[in-house]
Amino acid sequence: MRVLGLAALVAFLIDQISKYLVIHVMELWRIRSIDVLPPVLNFRYGENRGINFGLFSDGSDASRWILIALAVVICVAIVIWSRRHPLGNWALIGAGFLVGGALGNVLDRLVYGYVLDFLNMSCCGINNPFVFNLADVFIFAGAIALVFLAPDPEKTPKKGQ
């Protein structure tokens, strides 16, 4: 479980430091747009009050707290599940990335009332209007890692059996 905790801490810190540097130090909140490697990588300021792609973003305080509670419940469930199943280090890192990314977005909702987003990527003549953050990357990578690296529950006995 130490591997999961360390991976979660690394993901959380990278997410929060990147948001602080880009949004506050580089003042993206003020200038709204920085072309880094256009069109592939751009910084665009975004306030996400919902989930992915702005879904469920009615902006109400109730939805904010529901999303916070849901993220915390998912994080706790992943930690409990990881303790009950024999996972290799790579799967534990994936679980940690998912937890750390989710908690990074939870902290944003607690501090700002919304999730700070700043990454925008487009390519090949397609203009992508969506923004995301590194927490989202960690959540996605962690989920993919768990799908591909977690043992098949039908073939692996639970710990303690």
Rank of each mutant, 00 (worst) to 15 (best):
A71E: 03
D58L: 07
D61Q: 09
P39G: 02
I78Y: 08
D35A: 10
D35R: 08
S60L: 01
Y45I: 11
A62T: 15
S60V: 06
H24L: 10
L28S: 11
R44K: 10
M26E: 13
A77I: 07
I78V: 15
S33Y: 15
D61V: 13
G54T: 06
R44H: 13
S63N: 00
I66G: 05
V79G: 08
R44M: 09
W29A: 10
V40P: 04
E47F: 06
V79Q: 06
G59F: 05
V73L: 15
E27Y: 13
L28I: 07
G54L: 07
F53G: 00
V25R: 12
M26Y: 15
D58W: 05
A77H: 03
L41N: 02
V72R: 01
I78L: 14
F53H: 01
I68S: 04
V79L: 15
I31Y: 11
L41I: 07
D58P: 08
E27N: 14
R32C: 10
A77S: 14
D58Q: 05
I34H: 03
C75R: 06
G46K: 09
L41R: 02
S33R: 13
S33N: 11
A77D: 02
Y45G: 04
P39C: 01
F53R: 06
V79K: 07
F56H: 02
L37T: 05
W65R: 00
S57L: 09
F43A: 02
R44F: 09
S33E: 13
V76C: 11
A71R: 06
S57F: 06
H24A: 06
S63R: 00
S33C: 05
S57R: 03
N48F: 12
R64G: 07
S33I: 14
G59V: 12
S60T: 15
E27K: 15
H24E: 13
V36M: 07
A62W: 09
E47I: 03
V73A: 15
H24C: 01
L67Y: 00
F53M: 11
M26D: 09
Y45F: 15
F53V: 12
V36Q: 04
V40R: 00
I68K: 05
V79T: 14
L41Y: 04
L41C: 05
A69I: 12
L70W: 09
A71Q: 06
A77T: 12
R44I: 13
V40M: 03
E47T: 11
I34Y: 08
H24N: 13
V73Y: 08
D61Y: 05
Y45A: 12
R49N: 10
L28N: 05
L55C: 00
V72E: 00
I23W: 12
S63Y: 01
S33P: 00
V76W: 07
L70E: 03
A62M: 11
R49C: 09
V72I: 15
I34C: 06
L67H: 02
N42V: 06
L55A: 14
A71F: 08
V36H: 00
C75Q: 09
F43D: 03
L37Q: 02
D35Y: 01
V25T: 12
P39M: 02
R32L: 15
S63C: 00
G46F: 09
I34Q: 05
S60H: 00
D61T: 14
D61L: 10
H24Y: 13
F43N: 01
V76T: 11
G59T: 09
V36L: 07
M26W: 15
V73G: 14
